[in-house]
Design a protein around this nucleic acid. Structure first.
Length: 507
RNA sequence: GGCGACGUCGCCAAGUGGCAAGGCAGAGGCCUGCAAAGCCUUUAUCCCCGGUUCGAAUCCGGGCGUCGCCUCCA
């Protein structure tokens, strides 16, 4: 089944046909490295990470290019505030950006060019534009002439005259038209600068994306992504300069993500209501953050709050619990076939690898409907749970293999969404707080925390055998306060440590 | 003022002409010493008013409300 994508240029869903069969060339606008990225930035990068992963899962060879804007007004301003060199500021936040993306589980780009390493290409494109009559020089600045490009406005659905009537910012008298934008800026004293045919200067904002994408992907590459606030003027200007310079279409499919909001308002630097990704990741595991964002379609606005993160945490638990339960059942060879076990539970288990993959793909093929894809995974979870409930691992190897197959599908498809299941089994590094508890309740005198927990569980088992519920519950409640959960299963008590004295999210 | 998006169960959310997915929360039941996890059951005619259609949450018109872009912004 073909993949369909919403193309901002046509405002409709179109069948996705890449330029070169089997290959996808995509470009996503990267960060300006003047600060840590915020959670809104993260949403956009996450969106395109999942799109890239799904295209790869679908069999495409994806070449993914993302710029690093490391020379810009905001970087210069920040450096001036802090009495540092712009390059130093850019280097610091470039590193921070990569670390944050790694922490979120975003795959690295195939290529991540920096603006400062693309200067010759930007100068060359500016020269091309001047030659073709699309740009003009004024006092060391070079401006693109929007009037020279008749199709200006086709992406954002505006026309030049409407834009000018709504203009409310000071007009630079040196521009031929108020909408003309800088391709090259003459450097002011103290600013980073490079030699150019128009004097010492630095590139304008939009230019790098046009140059890098053409160098790395060629023109009329497949997918250009970014958040919807980049449609105008950024992407509109990219189209103008690229198509004016090459005389060819720039991009086949424009994909734009919805903005993240806080309290139903746009989160932005200027409103000051933003949260940094790194701060959120200190409090919530990456899979939970990803899950929250993937529960909403990528083009819709998404309201972000800790309440919703907590909710996503519970959803994550539901998705990974069957994997934990299956491992536990296998380790204990738990076969709990019940008298009322049903034939349909077996049939569902047999069908689920295929039905889950089909439903997942059908949702994702429809403009990357991750919410629908998740629904397919929750259905798979129910099938697994139901089978485990009724049969355990099953009385013969045939079902054990079926269970493994279903679990593999679940892990694989969660992987396409970049939702790691690795955290699900973490249970090491018990806190030393268990030692006094074990001494008081189990008479354990050693210093090995794992042995202490074992002693506590043994004491609890003994107490339960003696029907001494108060003593048994003292162990469970004591451990609960330290971040452990005890669950009694047909194969004995299972203890899960969720970390710290405080659970990463309420359980 | 110009352009655009959205309004679906308590909360979140999918669904673009044919009996309204899913998650969270709630209720009842099963299981449990009690729990936890899990299973089963249970909760909507889709902002309002018109229209098109055999049939609309889905198409058209109007209204109300929310949000975004038009200025750096993911």
């Amino acid at each position: 089944m073909p993949i369909r994508v919403h193309n901002t240029l046509s405002r409709t869903k179109e069948e996705f046909t890449p330029r070169d069969s089997g290959k996808v060339a995509m470009y996503v606008c990267g960060p300006t490295v003047y600060n840590h990225i915020h959670i809104g930035n993260a949403r956009t990068f996450l969106t395109f990470d999942v799109i890239r992963r799904y295209l790869t899962y679908s069999g495409y060879d994806v070449r993914f290019v993302q710029n690093i804007t490391d020379v810009d007004d905001k970087i210069i301003a920040r450096a001036a505030e802090e009495g540092r060199e712009p390059a130093e500021v850019a280097a610091e936040y470039t590193l921070a950006f990569r670390q944050a993306m790694d922490a979120l589980g975003v795959e690295r780009p195939t290529v991540a060019p920096k603006a400062t390493q693309t200067i010759p290409g930007m100068i060359a494109m500016t020269e091309r534009l001047i030659e073709r009559g699309h740009a003009y020089v004024v006092d060391g600045d070079v401006y693109f002439s929007v009037r020279s490009f008749p199709e200006y406005g086709k992406l954002s659905g505006r026309n030049i005259d409407d834009l000018e009537s709504g203009a409310r910012v000071d007009v630079d008298e040196r521009k031929q038209d108020p909408l003309d934008f800088a391709l090259w800026k003459a450097a002011k004293p103290g600013e980073p600068h490079w030699a150019s045919p128009w004097g010492e200067g630095r590139p304008g904002w939009h230019l790098e994306c046009s140059v890098m994408s053409e160098e790395e992907l060629g023109v009329a590459f497949d997918i250009h992504g970014g958040a919807s606030d980049l449609i105008f003027p950024h992407h509109e200007n990219e189209i103008a300069q690229s198509e004016a310079a090459t005389g060819q279409p720039f991009v086949r499919y424009w994909l734009h993500g919805g903005l993240l909001q806080v309290n139903a308002e746009k989160m932005s630097k200027s409103l000051g209501n933003f949260m940094l990704l790194k701060d959120v990741l200190e409090r919530y595991p990456a899979p939970v953050v990803r899950l929250l964002m993937l529960q909403t379609h990528y083009r819709s606005p998404l309201d972000f709050s800790t309440d919703r993160l907590d909710e996503a945490g519970r959803s994550y638990e539901r998705l990974v619990t069957p994997l934990r339960n299956l491992e536990w059942a296998k380790r204990n060879r738990a076969i709990t076939e019940r008298a009322d076990a049903t034939r349909s539970a077996i049939e569902a288990l047999e069908c689920t690898p295929v039905t889950a993959r089909d439903a997942f793909a059908a949702a994702m093929d429809d403009d990357f409907n991750t919410a629908g894809a998740l629904a397919a995974l929750f259905d798979l979870v129910r099938v697994l749970n139901t089978f485990l409930e009724q049969y355990g691992i099953g009385a013969n190897a045939r079902y054990a293999a079926r269970l493994d197959e279903a679990a593999d599908v679940l892990r694989d498809l969660l992987g396409v969404l970049g939702v790691s299941t690795a955290d699900a089994a973490r249970a090491d590094e018990y806190p030393s707080d268990v030692l006094p508890l074990a001494r008081d309740l189990a008479g354990y005198a050693g210093s090995d925390t794992r042995a202490a927990v074992e002693a506590l569980l043994t004491a609890r088992t003994v107490a339960r055998t003696e029907r001494n519920w108060a003593a048994a519950d003292a162990v469970r409640d004591g451990l609960e306060r330290l971040g452990f959960t005890i669950e009694d299963t047909p194969s004995g008590a299972r203890v899960t440590f969720r970390g710290g004295g405080q659970a990463p999210w309420p359980t």
